[in-house]
């Protein structure tokens, strides 16, 4: 059998397996969002759901690399930012449709991810963390320096949205999220995820057993960057503008905190946590002035109570059925 055919068959099998492994709760949430999009015309609710979906995309793309390889990428905004801006520029200056800008900008992010992944290969722990921080900082500095292209502080506005209505935009986003989560689950459950996991404890052992850990880490970086890029483009085409916030350190930090609180190395833990936390944050608007304090305070408390994240709490180890329903089958 020819090689491309073989790869295609493997991918198909992986996706099928990912579908079987998917969490029921996630499917229900996606269905709920779809139904809301079809029935509700409450602009405010729809906007919040779009935001929640975007954060779910961000956290899961962080987790697919960092949760498995157990390295902390504090610069995910590099990928969301680069992709969001590329989508914005392609759309504005070449009038490219979102159907093209999303795959192109996500691929560009993936390419950047492969390069950074390759550069970061030898670095661990603090060194790795600093490299990711610095890369993201370089990007946002560049955005300021080339402000004639990027719009500087203001960013770029007037980007086309996916469609003419928020309802359809939400449907597009949730569909993208669903497909992304499926793909990432398939990746994580494949031998790639397994090997990434094995490198976290002992890279030397992995090396000794003849595995080329480098290949898998770089690939993981590419996948993570690609889906973060999808999220960045999603942001551009739903908010119709991009600003330096999309590549800011605070976004990176927020993504890490939400993903870790959800439970690293589970994909769906970060997804559910991001969704719930985004909604919680919006709900807190009833006490607007203290909202950010309570929100960040909640993050601290969550991380304190579940230092390994909710999905990895011992509680779920004792209740496998519940775990299966919420977070899907284990890798």
């Amino acid at each position: 059998m020819s090689r491309p055919l073989l790869i295609a068959r493997r991918a198909a099998a992986g996706l099928l397996d990912a579908i079987q492994a998917l969490s029921l709760v996630f499917v229900i949430i996606v269905a709920g969002i779809v139904i809301t999009a079809l029935t509700s015309s409450n602009f405010y609710v729809l906007e919040i759901l779009v935001l929640a979906v975007i954060y779910m995309q961000f956290t899961s793309s962080w987790d697919v690399l960092c949760g498995y390889a157990n390295q902390d990428n504090f610069g995910i905004a590099f990928f969301t930012g680069i992709s969001g801006y590329i989508a914005a520029i392609l759309n504005k200056s070449l009038a490219m449709s979102p159907w093209l800008t999303v795959p192109i900008s996500a691929t560009a992010a993936a390419a950047a991810g492969l390069v950074i992944g390759w550069l970061a290969l030898r670095l661990r722990g603090p060194y790795f963390a600093l490299l990711t921080i610095v890369f993201a900082a370089v990007l946002s500095k560049l955005a300021y320096i080339f402000s004639h292209v990027t719009g500087g502080e203001e960013g770029i506005s007037g980007i086309a949205s996916f469609s003419r209505s928020v309802e359809t935009d939400l449907l597009v986003c949730v569909a993208l999220l669903f497909i992304s989560v499926l793909c990432m689950t398939a990746f994580a459950r494949s031998h790639y995820g397994l090997i990434l996991r094995s490198t976290q404890h002992n890279e030397d052992a992995a090396l000794a057993s003849g595995i080329n850990a480098a290949h898998y880490k770089v690939a993981g970086f590419g996948v993570s960057a690609f889906f973060a890029g999808v999220g960045g483009a999603m942001f551009a085409h739903t908010h119709m503008q991009v600003s330096p916030e999309l590549m800011a350190g605070s976004l990176s930090v927020l993504v890490v905190l939400m993903a870790v609180a959800g439970g690293r190395g589970t994909i769906l833990g970060p997804v559910l946590a991001a969704g719930a936390l985004t909604l919680f944050n919006e709900w807190l608007r009833i006490i607007e002035i203290y909202r950010p304090i309570i929100f960040t305070g909640t993050l601290i408390v969550m991380i304190y109570i579940f230092p390994s994240g909710i999905a990895n709490a011992s509680f779920f180890a004792r209740a496998p059925l519940l775990r299966r329903l919420l977070f899907g089958r284990e890798a």
């Binding site: 504090f74 927020l254 870790v260 993050l299 601290i300 991380i303």
Partner: peptide
């Protein structure tokens, strides 16, 4: 690292 960042944000 993560919990201290959360504190910083807070």
């Amino acid at each position: 690292m993560v919990v201290s960042l959360a504190f910083a944000l807070f």
